[in-house]
Design a binder for these strands. Structure first.
Length: 755
DNA sequence: CCGATTTCCGCACAG
DNA sequence: CGGAAATCGG
């Protein structure tokens, strides 16, 4: 039987609050996942059937983790529970119900962003639009944006404000037609079409509303309008909707996420209960105070302050480098030092940066020093050339109407079928109104083909026919894939070419075959259960392809491997490390140059800074380079405003991990940077030790009294610790933690003393 | 049609 | 600077 244990009072309340909407504002490291998993387990223990619960997470990885943790709490009682991402939940619904949407078939394929881009490109050509003025990427983004707002082509056209948008609307219309013709949905369609389907068919909606009586949404601050609408529909009947999120960690607005969804939850659900998880179990006080202080500069946020019972810890360490090489040198040197002196394994460290381009220098340095590292950058496994190729073959075999993937494989490996031949085949297929793959089989009848091309096409047709037959008879995806690789000559081609590159490709393909093998194994066990993503297996090729399109690279991060991890501040969300380095603390980099103009964007960058800082358990290192090479030219950047926003008593140029330096050796004070140097009216000796006598009243212009972390006394509330400082002089407002109670104190009026 | 060369252009990225 | 795409020349 399930017991509530090891949960703090607020967490327990969040777990037990059962009926009606519930908003849980969960600060970083406040045990959010714990609460969610316990809540699910609790519901089940209370007699709620697991299939009546729908839990949505942001990533597959999070879903997997949650499933494991719920499983550990409930055992087999958790069978039938849906824990999935928005996308896989929608796929599941659509596979079942897509019959309600005319023009689609149940065996639809999912187009990823590459496929999407390819389709957009052909649309641009057909619309006679200049690809310079209308880059496929940008137009694709605009279409995606529209879908995230649930605008169909007509809606979008109506709202088109300028020429670009008007043309984009045309492309959208055509794009949509093409996708439909290929029986394909892109990622945004998965959500949008589900919403449309449920909206147009009340009886279907009702079925799902009845089924999912309890809905939980994680990372609610990252939902977009389409997802928000979906949730609203599904929860419309029972209103047992529990959303968890942290507005301070909303960093995906550029992807359509709308922070208002979480900020306005209480408006949407007036009867909602709101709980705040503010106790942090991860970081030292110094780290939390610094993070709180930075994010406290944002206007658009829910008042919320993290506190912890963890030790104070040492101040954050700041390093001003000459350039990016010096910066990397510093970071790597620190890692080596902490590794040697404190015996920290390399997976204690994460190096975070704003853009992937910053990783290269770091990588070079780590390699030079022979430190193991893992890098999480753009190149995803499923986006590598060879993987895309084999996948394209599999996709065409599964869906002969898939034009995008057909075009991809027609001349891979090279078989003398270029753009010219490809266009003729596609044209013929369109005229005859048949799937492209079938058109190939009629190669003899396709007009205007060069004799060479026709011959080659016939050979290709035979090949594909054989493979198709194999794919239909063969259950093992591995077998099918192996057969493709050998029969097409793809493998031989790579083997013959004896470069390190082709070697790496072969390795990737081997890796791919191990993925299929794992899939086969599970499918073969013939348990009609669920895969690790909570999606029921559709046995065979289709099931495999679906799983592949919905899985992401970061899901494969293994934090147990003894390697330093390099990644962007975005992808680090949800993770934690004992020691965190944040590099490139410069205006123009972080906050990025594009965010400088719009204040709203700076706030998002600030949240990103908050996310980065709160990943650290024990130590944070921040660095800045005076100048660096960017896009081939040297740039001089000012240091980031976020550095200035960290209270100066919490940011130190000296690393406390170093053995104590001899007295008066270097700069005596803690910090020397920016405009807030100790020189501003007080002796350096004021730092660390209170300059004033204890117990004396605070005076509004005594800056060193108002430092985050200082203890103060209040005649009504007793003792407290300053958590955040806003404003200057007599307008200073302190946020003070009195034994867990947060109070705003106006220093001008309050009777407080320094302790 | 193919490989080599030049030109272009630049955030973040899950599903 | 470095990767992807466009263009060139055989």
């Amino acid at each position: 039987m399930y017991r509530l244990e090891d949960l703090n009072p607020v967490q327990q309340e969040a777990v037990k609050y059962r009926e009606g909407p519930l908003l849980i504002l969960a600060g970083a490291g406040s045990g959010k996942t714990r609460v969610l998993t316990h809540r699910i387990a609790y519901l089940i223990a209370q007699g709620v059937e697991p299939w009546e619960i729908l839990a949505i997470t942001f990533t597959n990885k999070a879903a997997q983790e949650m499933r494991e943790r719920v499983g550990a709490l409930t055992g087999s009682a958790g069978r039938g529970l849906w824990v999935s991402t928005f996308h896989s939940a929608c796929v599941r619904i659509l596979r079942q119900e897509i019959g309600y949407l005319p023009g689609y078939a149940h065996d639809f394929v999912i187009y990823d962003s590459n496929d999407q881009k390819a389709v957009v490109k052909t649309c641009l050509k057909e619309c006679n639009l200049d690809e310079k003025k209308f880059p496929a990427r940008a137009v694709g983004a605009v279409i995606s944006e529209a879908k995230n707002k649930l605008w169909n082509p007509a809606d979008f056209e109506e709202r088109a404000a300028d020429y670009f948008q008007e043309q984009a609307a045309k492309v959208y219309r055509l794009y949509h037609k093409k996708l439909k013709a290929s029986n394909a949905l892109d990622f945004d369609d998965l959500i949008m079409l589900t919403v449309i389907l449920l909206g147009q068919n009340p009886e279907v909606l009702e079925r799902y509303q009845e089924r999912f009586r309890y809905i939980l949404i994680d990372e609610y601050q990252d939902t977009n309008y389409a997802q928000y609408s979906l949730v609203k529909m599904l929860a419309g009947r029972y209103r047992n909707l529990c959303v968890v999120g942290d507005d301070d960690q909303s960093v995906y607005s550029w992807r359509g996420a709308d922070i208002r969804n979480i900020l306005d939850f209480e408006r949407d659900y007036p009867e909602a209960k709101v709980l705040k998880l503010e106790q942090n179990y991860r970081s030292t006080q110094s780290i939390l105070q610094a993070a709180n202080s930075v994010v406290g500069n944002n206007r658009e946020r829910k008042e919320k302050l993290l506190w912890t019972e963890n030790p104070q810890g040492s101040p954050l360490v700041f390093y001003a480098a000459d350039d990016e090489h010096d910066e990397s040198r510093y970071v790597v040197e620190r890692i080596q030092r902490l590794h040697n002196l404190e015996g920290r394994p390399f997976n204690d460290f994460a190096v975070l940066y704003r853009t992937n381009a910053q990783s290269r220098v770091l990588e070079e340095r780590l390699m030079k020093e022979g430190i193991p590292y893992r890098i999480f950058s753009g190149h995803k496994f499923y986006e590598r050339l060879e993987i895309k190729d084999i996948l394209a073959y599999l996709r065409v075999l599964a869906n002969p109407a898939d034009k995008v993937n057909f075009s991809r494989i027609l001349n891979v490996p090279k078989r003398g079928l270029g753009d010219a031949a490809s266009a003729k085949v596609l044209e013929y297929a369109e005229e005859q109104n048949m799937p492209v793959l079938e058109a190939v089989l009629e190669a003899e009848y396709i007009p205007e083909l060069q004799p060479r091309a026709r011959k080659s096409l016939l050979a290709f047709a035979r090949l594909m026919k054989d493979l198709k037959e194999l794919a239909q008879a063969e259950k093992s995806v591995t077998k099918i894939a192996e057969e493709i690789l050998s029969r097409t000559g793809y493998k031989d081609l790579l083997s013959a070419d004896n470069t390190t590159e082709s070697q790496a490709r072969l390795e990737n393909l081997a890796e791919f075959l191990s993925v299929t093998a794992e899939y086969d194994l599970k499918a073969h066990e013939n348990k009609p259960l669920e895969d690790e993503f909570g999606v029921e297996y559709i046995p065979g090729l289709n099931g495999f392809l679906e799983q592949v399109s919905l899985v992401a690279e970061t899901d494969q991060l293994d934090q147990r491997e003894a390697a330093v991890i390099l990644m962007t501040m975005h992808s680090v969300k949800g993770l934690e490390f004992p020691v965190v380095f944040v590099v490139g603390m410069e205006e123009g980099i972080f906050p990025g140059s594009r965010s400088q103009l719009e204040p709203g964007l700076v706030e998002e960058e600030r949240r990103l800074c908050y996310v980065a800082l709160t990943r650290a358990r024990e130590k944070v290192y921040l660095s800045y380079a005076d100048h660096r090479m960017l896009y081939g030219r040297r740039q001089y950047n000012r240091r980031s405003r976020f550095l200035e926003e960290i209270p100066y008593n919490l940011l130190n140029e000296k690393d406390p991990s170093d053995p104590p330096a001899r007295q008066a050796s270097k700069k005596a004070g803690n910090v020397e940077y920016g405009s807030r140097t100790p020189a501003a009216g007080m002796p350096a000796s004021a730092f660390g030790s209170p300059a004033r006598k204890l117990g004396t009243p605070l005076v509004a212009n005594n800056q060193e009294d108002f430092l985050v972390g200082n203890k103060i006394g209040h005649d009504k509330f007793g003792q407290g610790i300053i958590m955040a400082v806003k404003g200057k002089g007599r307008e200073t407002i302190l946020t003070v933690n009195f034994q867990g109670q947060l109070k705003q104190i106006a220093t001008e009026y309050a009777k407080i003393t320094r302790l």
